[in-house]
Design a protein around this nucleic acid. Structure first.
Lengths: 244, 244
DNA sequence: ATCTTGTAGTGGTATAGACCAGTGACAGAT
DNA sequence: ATCTGTCACTGGTCTATACCACTACAAGAT
């Protein structure tokens, strides 16, 4: 049971502990309502200081996976809270987590000169090359959203050559370019679809839709992409948990 | 400049530091983009350990008020990010934080027998007494949302006697009953308004609107209220920051 | 039986130090 | 003029320890 943690590894100890506990929750070894070992027990077990354990537990509490109770043990939060725990997902991940099979039909995919608005969002000069990717998103083979995404061309030079029909864009960015989206700023609006959008989404013109604009950044606060997605209101809604 | 902190006080030092920095941001002494003093400088200034300063800064980063950059200084986040910092607000707080004057017109306010769906959301038996509060929300004197809220009658017995036209419901709950909402589960949908809703909101029938359902809980996970709000799409949108 | 009071357990706060990992600027080498 | 390495500075991680605040429970007092 010793050597649960890898001390030579570059990965911080508290993150290794975080992953271990998180996995135990995800695999069902720890269930909603269960009390987890005390911080001092974990410290002895992993042979780290209690503060290190606390860092890991803090993160799990932030994620909504654990609930602290002063004087009493820390317990695993209920699953309804977990599901919608903060954090954002790519379309692919989002659908998969709901047990739905995602797919895409690429409508447009090319490199172009950035407009003023796209340039300002991506922190580029007006006219700089950007990759434009327009996809119809399907959930279980049926249209659910229309998505237009812009990325800086210089950052992802050969992206146009990859198959984005089946593969997640985020996964491609991470695997090929080592870029990981960690922060997203979103605005959510309600709109009415026009004729063209209605045809693509296979709904009536004038139907309601959710328009979500997202600006995604990496750990260095560099903008990775700007995305506008139009979701069919009858098939999609946003779920969030907010605390204060 | 000494004795910035009160060490005899019951309030934790890191929270006192958190409040100080937060106030400096709110009052404009620290502006978006400004770099704040380094953690070691703060530690010297306040005569506390660096870890204590870090606890305060961590909380501010979580709130979305500060951005960390390893190797570089920590900076004050842009106001667009701050606004949407995690955490939810009551309608009143929400409008005030945007510099808009909120008001309400109470449409209905009475006690009734709970329906099956309301009862299940509030964790009550079907038919238990609930307070129903329906209000037209105004922003700068113009309609912006239609809100229907249910609360368990037994928990807030005399609530109906308070003036909720001018006062925040959340503030009343906290002041009168010591109940503080800390967690909210929300779902956001896009819909089309019907004739009746259109008239109240002073928009055209068939216009888009955001339908937000919220379940609010206190620190003990007890459900406080369930709210359904219909926002005019032309005057309201949701802004969020999500990280993973 | 019921009430008090330890007491041992939990998480919460705080210390003082250490070393690692990025960043940027400046001095010296080319 | 340009590259390159050093260095001082930032935040990131970690230790070992201490005491406080709250909770639960059991032993003793009533």
């Amino acid at each position: 049971m010793t050597q649960l943690l890898n001390r030579t590894h570059h990965k911080p100890l508290y993150l290794q502990i975080y992953d271990l506990i998180r996995d135990q929750i995800n695999t069902g070894q720890l269930r909603a309502g269960d009390t987890i070992p005390s911080e001092r027990e974990y410290a002895d077990l992993f042979e780290v200081s209690r503060m290190t354990v606390r860092a890991a537990v803090n993160k799990l509490v932030q994620d909504g996976l654990l609930l602290r109770n002063q004087g009493k043990a820390t317990v695993v939060a209920s699953t309804t809270i977990q599901k919608s725990a903060r954090g954002f997902k790519s379309f692919t991940e989002d659908m998969q987590s709901l047990g739905i099979v995602p797919s895409s039909r690429v409508l447009k995919m090319h490199s172009e000169m950035s407009s003023a608005s796209v340039a300002s969002q991506l922190n580029l000069k007006i006219g700089a090359r950007v990759i434009c990717l327009e996809r119809l998103r399907l959930a279980d083979e049926e249209p659910i959203a229309l998505e237009r995404c812009y990325l800086p061309h210089d950052t992802f030079p050969e992206l146009l050559e990859h198959d984005l029909t089946q593969h997640s864009l985020y996964k491609t960015l991470e695997d090929r370019y080592g870029v990981r989206p960690v922060l997203a700023e979103e605005t959510i609006e309600a709109v009415i679809v026009n004729q063209e959008e209605a045809e693509l989404l296979q709904i009536e013109k004038g139907s309601p839709a959710l328009l979500i604009r997202r600006l995604t950044k990496d750990a260095r606060q560099q903008v990775i992409e700007t995305v506008t997605t139009l979701y069919r209101a009858d098939r999609y809604r946003v779920v969030l948990v907010r605390s204060r």
